[in-house]
Write a protein that binds this DNA or RNA. Sequence first.
DNA 1: TTCTACTTGCAATTGAGTTGCAAAAGCATT
DNA 2: AATGCTTTTGCAACTCAATTGCAAGTAGAA
Lengths: 149, 149
Amino acid sequence: MKRGNSSHDAETAELLRRVGLRLTGSRRYVLEALLQSGHPLSHQELLGRRDSLRFDRVTIYRALLALKRKGLVHDVKGTDGIRRFGAHPTDLPHCPGNHAHFLCRRCGRMFCLTESPLPWVEVPAGTTVEGKQMVVYGLCPQCARREND
Amino acid sequence: MKRGNSSHDAETAELLRRVGLRLTGSRRYVLEALLQSGHPLSHQELLGRRDSLRFDRVTIYRALLALKRKGLVHDVKGTDGIRRFGAHPTDLPHCPGNHAHFLCRRCGRMFCLTESPLPWVEVPAGTTVEGKQMVVYGLCPQCARREND
DNA sequence: TTCTACTTGCAATTGAGTTGCAAAAGCATT
DNA sequence: AATGCTTTTGCAACTCAATTGCAAGTAGAA
Ligand SMILES: [Mn+2]
Ligand SMILES: [Mn+2]
Ligand SMILES: [Zn+2]
Ligand SMILES: [Zn+2]
């Protein structure tokens, strides 16, 4: 499968191989996009990115699920009901998304708040905790400026 | 509009009046249900509760929105994409849902973790924070027991 | 009782995400 | 470079939460 040649191209191949995933066009594209974008992306945002290199919607979903299952990306369900996926910065060995995320209600962009690790949470005895997520929402700096034009 | 006579009946009327909402059957029913249930309820859970007293799905949605707008309930969007609403315990004067919530991935019940207030979160300069939510997910004690039967 | 603004029911619609299946492609092997 | 097995892809259909428009009904004030 043909690919555009971009900065993380070799890196994505190496990452996919390392976790035992086949190197396919959609996976390289999605992982690449998540690495380049400085912030988590929704399925919808991933669909429209380049005019060449078009994949089916379902294929993008399945690529995301594969990357998630192998721990290459983390995901957050926003207060808007939309799931966004972020690649882990490759310099940090294991940052499995255990930080808060900010969601702008106006532009819909999500940002990792990597400086805000999630707190320990006390749960009732017998409860099994499998994960947690925190979403802070409001207006990003850009949108806050426009709001009071 | 006819109503079942239950424990919080007078209380709901008083609450609705206090915030300037008209006393309608659907609002009294929804608020009552949220007060009685010890945990937040989804729209779907609210629909099936009694056989008498049937309201349209959309009416239940709109009742929830009204209660939310007036601050009588708080809401959380679960990692399963379903929004759940919880009444504020009336003894606490203002507990606007600023605590973590647990969501069981098996039975779908959500619980308020009122002992875990949400932490302060640092955001980039210029950002406007309007709210935040934290969802801890896994298995509730009941479901955890059944999982290894 | 009357009036009016607000609320409800119904039908249609949006949009995220999932499922089943046949065709296509990755990759290890010959 | 061809073989063969397994995984992945594209397509169409589907599920399900939530929203919208509008006409009919109702709460609450006068
Ligand atoms: Mn993140
Ligand atoms: Mn709560
Ligand atoms: Zn924004
Ligand atoms: Zn459970």
